[in-house]
Design a protein around this nucleic acid. Structure first.
Length: 649
RNA sequence: GGGCCCGUAGCCUAGUACGGAUUAAGGUGUCGGCCUUCGGAGCCGGAGAUCGUGGGUUCAAAUCCCACCGGGCCCGCCA
């Protein structure tokens, strides 16, 4: 017999048994919803119901008395996996699984389904777009931004395994002013070929250019302040200039040649800021030279991103350029439609979107989890000069996404929650309520560095590449120390998947709503609760199976009676439920936790109980099957979060 | 000022959506053990927690409600 969800099957049996008993003994009570809880202790069985506390109130009896009646009325003979049902505590009903049958069912199912085990398919498969990463092509991806692709990719993976048709999208935000800044600097340098990894190369140009342009702008602002004799303005501007001058000094020291050249070239322009604005406008208008230039420098940077993402095995199905939506009619069409809706008004010559009014008229506040008294701020849709703003363009982009998917999940930092809410409300305003309902902002909390704030403008950041390099280097040292007998090639390959796995794990492991403080210690952790730990445990399981060098022929599952063995079987049987939950509630960190807990338990198991040299051949066979099952499930779990499950390390 | 998120041993984290069992679960660090058979990236044991604070709801609260405190983020004709 094979079950794709052994624990789920047991749960269903218990629910049915209990429902029948209630119907039989208490026909006057209308069928309550039955939810079963995991027990705190294996001695209380595997599932428990506390329904008697509710029933007791209605019946005006003691919970334990009700429990006793119900237990007596339960006919377990018509069920397969229920060994016994007992009443306990103040009024619990505890269900005990028949371990002989359950172990056989679980282990045989895993053996049969193998690398498909656990991935229960949804009854409602959908086309889903997961947009993630979407780092602006201005500078290398830094560690604060790297949490995004790690979460996004894990989400895409689990949804895919769930049976959805997932498409991973990268939104290239090339329309902002910042893109024009870097393009301007790049142009001034004569469009040089990168002398290093392209995104790092572009990043330096961006940082230095933006600093020089800012200083130039502030100096002109100071002249104005002097001319109009505004002391207040003068003090403020001077302060800003001082700040930027210190950044400039830092940059000059770090990149002396680049700094000198850019300073000379930018100095040729009377008003660099005006040049940049002109470039920006030309780009939005689709002027060919501007297009050529900005696309060229953006592409350069994206090439660097692709290299980085290839290292961590993250890829994308679609690269969506924001500019394409501006150049086509899509953005202007959305604007037109919004303009004619009752939710857009003009104020001081600019178009404003009244998100609050939408929420009120469509009565969305409680649905969106907002308090009735909270007033949602308006959103500016268009500048006075007729150019559009980021969120406006995002509305067009989102509609385009819904043209090819039923559900859209945006992996975007929680600092953009308001903008994402306004975007959702714009969809309602446009009459696309169904889209809005299937529009998910997967918000995650920030990664911060202890000590200082990351600032891409200042060039103060730890790049994701650096973190990966360091992790692989550290892993190499570890492998060399622990397994000196391995060949150089093996060591390098192991160091790579261990180091990268460690980083992926560290960024996925924490609940996405919680902030993460980046420390090297966290990411380079190779001990318990890390990818290397789970990987190592997986390799040990493989090692035992290798050493046994035989297929278990007569496993006697009833001999797996040790508490540890039973707990392991329960863990394995619960993998499908865990997977379903992680997928439905978008909690990739659950997978990491599960893998770690399974590794923990397995480590304890094989340290305490001999597998190959067990007392009897039948027991040894049973433990071998158990070990196989653990190896398979650990492999499947690691796979879900994009981590290699090695046979040796 | 308004809104959102976070607050669990020295440090890091699970549990919170859906309230349940005398003892709130791991890790790290700390103290003490383990070449015992399958790889010590490991295993076993000890100490270590007013679950931010105060109220409330409930037979039952880390979990739900209210108020407050601490930290972060957002409230741009930036993205």
């Amino acid at each position: 017999m094979v079950s794709e969800n052994p624990f789920g099957q047991f749960r269903r049996e218990c629910e049915e048994a209990l429902a029948k008993a209630i119907k039989k003994t208490l026909p006057e009570i209308k069928a309550p919803t039955i939810t079963l809880n995991k027990t705190p202790n294996i001695e209380f069985g595997q599932l428990a119901s506390s329904i008697c506390f509710d029933l007791a109130k209605k019946l005006n009896q003691k919970p334990i008395v009700v429990a006793e009646h119900l237990v007596k009325a339960i006919d377990k003979s018509s069920f397969n996996l229920i060994e016994k049902v007992v009443f306990a505590g103040a009024g619990y009903i505890n269900f005990h699984v028949d371990f002989t049958k359950f172990s056989a069912l679980t282990l045989e199912s895993i053996k049969k389904l193998k690398y498909d085990y656990g991935f229960v398919k949804t009854a409602n498969p959908q086309k889903i777009i997961v947009e993630h990463t979407s780092v602006n092509p201005l500078h290398p991806i830094h560690i604060g931004q790297a949490r995004n692709p790690m979460l996004g990719d894990a989400l895409a993976r689990i949804l895919e395994y769930r049976g959805h048709q997932v498409s991973r999208h990268y939104y290239v935000d090339d329309v902002g002013r910042q893109s024009s800044v870097v393009a301007y600097g790049y142009q001034k340098l004569g469009r040089p070929k990168p002398t290093e990894k392209a995104d790092h190369f572009v990043g330096k140009i961006y940082t230095v250019t933006s600093c020089l342009v800012e200083i130039n702008r502030l100096k002109r602002a100071r002249e104005v302040a002097v001319a109009v004799r505004s002391a207040e303005e003068l003090v403020k501007t001077n302060k800003e200039i001082d700040e930027w001058m210190s950044i400039a000094a830092e940059l000059k020291e770090k990149f002396p040649v680049l700094f000198e050249v850019l300073m000379a070239k930018i100095g040729e322009d009377e008003n660099p800021e005006e040049e940049i604005n002109r470039l920006n406008r030309a780009y939005e208008d689709g002027e060919p030279n501007a297009k050529q230039l900005i696309r060229e420098v953006s592409d350069l940077c994206l090439e660097g991103f692709k290299e980085t993402m290839a290292r961590v095995e993250v890829s994308y199905d679609s690269w969506d350029w924001e500019s394409d939506f501006v150049w086509s009619t899509q953005v202007s069409e959305v604007m037109q439609k919004l303009k004619t809706s009752p939710f857009v008004f003009t104020e001081k010559g600019v178009l404003e979107f009244d998100a609050e009014k939408v929420a009120q008229i469509f009565k969305l506040k409680s649905k969106l989890g907002l308090s009735e008294t909270h007033e949602i701020p308006t959103l500016t849709l268009m500048r006075a000069d007729g150019t559009t703003l980021y969120t406006t363009r995002d509305v067009a982009y989102t509609l385009w996404k819904f043209g090819q998917a039923q559900k859209v999940i945006n992996v975007i930092g929680m600092e953009q929650s308001l903008a994402q809410l306004q975007l959702k409300l714009a969809l309602y305003a446009l009459g696309y309520g169904e889209f809005a309902d299937n529009f998910v902002h997967f918000a995650y909390n920030l990664v911060t560095l202890p000590g200082y704030k990351m600032s891409s403008r200042r060039g103060h950041y730890i790049t994701f590449d650096e973190v990966l390099d360091e992790a692989v280097l550290r892993a190499y040292e570890e492998v060399s120390k622990r397994s000196p007998q391995l060949s150089e090639e093996e060591k390098r390959s192991i160091a790579n998947f261990v180091g990268i796995g460690a980083v992926r794990y560290a960024l996925v492991d924490v609940d996405s709503s919680k902030p993460v403080v980046f420390t090297w210690e966290r990411v380079l952790n190779f001990e318990t609760n890390s990818a290397p730990y789970v990987q190592y445990t997986h390799a040990r399981a493989c090692s035992i199976l290798r050493k046994a060098a035989r297929e278990p022929e007569k496993p006697a599952y009833d001999l797996l009676a040790e508490r540890l063995e039973r707990e392991l079987i329960l863990n394995l049987a619960g993998f499908p439920d865990m997977f379903i939950e992680a997928t439905e509630y978008l909690k990739p960190n659950n997978i990491a936790d599960y893998a770690n807990a399974l590794a923990d338990k397995f480590n304890t198991f094989y340290n305490a109980l001999p597998v190959i040299k067990a007392d009897s051949q039948e027991l040894s066979d049973a433990r071998l099957v158990l070990t196989q099952a653990i190896q398979i499930v650990m492999h499947n779990a690691l796979n879900l979060i994009g981590i290699v499950a090695p046979e040796k390390m």
